[in-house]
Design a protein around this nucleic acid. Structure first.
Lengths: 153, 153
DNA sequence: GCCGAATTGAGACCGAGTTTAATTTTGTTG
DNA sequence: CAACAAAATTAAACTCGGTCTCAATTCGGC
């Protein structure tokens, strides 16, 4: 992410903190910046590693808690995917994911038609829906290649 | 799930095994049956517990391995969600999910308009897409209630 | 019924994420 | 600007979902 949008995002986070009465600590700011720089759906550990080079005293639980905090206040999002380690998304805007059902990798996918979908009424389910994502499920390029050479299995 | 559709599903699995040259063991059959009975997106441990009552000698790694196997051959699916324990879905047909961003719970959601979406072209991404799911992201009823009584935070 | 290959069981192991309690920091208030 | 209470952070131990290893068993083709 380029520097100016990064500054915007950090600024917006400061604003959100003021509004919600959340504390804006040095660690939280560094962690947010790290997520904004680590574009490809980083894990908490990816973020921990990146942050450690800049602020070596930062502890692992701080990174984990802060990522949840940042997602809760809406300045980043938590991704939905089939793997079993949490992945965070620096993007909060509407976009979609291509999910590989073999290796659990996923990548962003842009599509205006999908963006334009009306959110269906879910009031009878008791859900207050604010957003949506379309997951296109399939097999990624490298898994296709692996399947071809690997043979039947 | 009712008995007759369960039998159908088990039968289809036997068929798939014959076609793919996969072994159709007693454990795999019991584990598949357990998933079909445990409707609400069970975790591997949910399945392990259910299976243990019926076939007490079954080992934990067998359940974990078998669930991955069943998903790989397509007789069940693995769910995409923001929590950090894997959840499996007895449904393989097209349907969608309401995801709670507070408690990570998710429930099925049926909608014909969403089902009718055309899968966009993803050939330039190297992905071979076979299926899709729409995730409606928001806050579930009990989390809304908790937020109201719990106050601002 | 035999045989080789694949699967299973048992237990140890790994590592993502959380808990605890003491310490530090934040932002507010006098 | 110093003091204060509340909230965040640190460090280390801990939990538990999931995986690895390897010997024993089972499947299914011959």
């Amino acid at each position: 992410m380029d520097d100016s949008s990064k500054r915007d995002r950090v600024q917006r986070y400061r604003q959100v903190c003021r509004e919600l009465g959340e504390r804006c600590t040095a660690q939280r700011l560094v962690i947010l910046e790290a997520v904004l720089e680590l574009d490809n759906h980083p894990t908490a550990d990816d973020v921990f590693t990146a942050v450690s080079t800049r602020l070596p005293t930062v502890a692992k639980p701080t990174v984990y808690r802060t990522l949840e905090h940042l997602a809760r206040v809406g300045v980043i999002t938590k991704a939905c995917h089939p793997g079993n380690v949490a992945r965070y998304d620096s993007r909060v805007d509407l976009h979609h994911h291509l999910v590989c059902l073999h290796c659990n990798q996923f990548v962003d996918f842009e599509n205006e038609t999908l963006d334009g979908l009306a959110i269906p009424d879910t009031s009878d389910m008791g859900f207050e829906v604010t957003d949506f994502r379309v997951q296109l499920r399939g097999i990624c390029r490298s898994c296709q290649a692996r399947a071809r050479e690997g043979g039947s299995k």
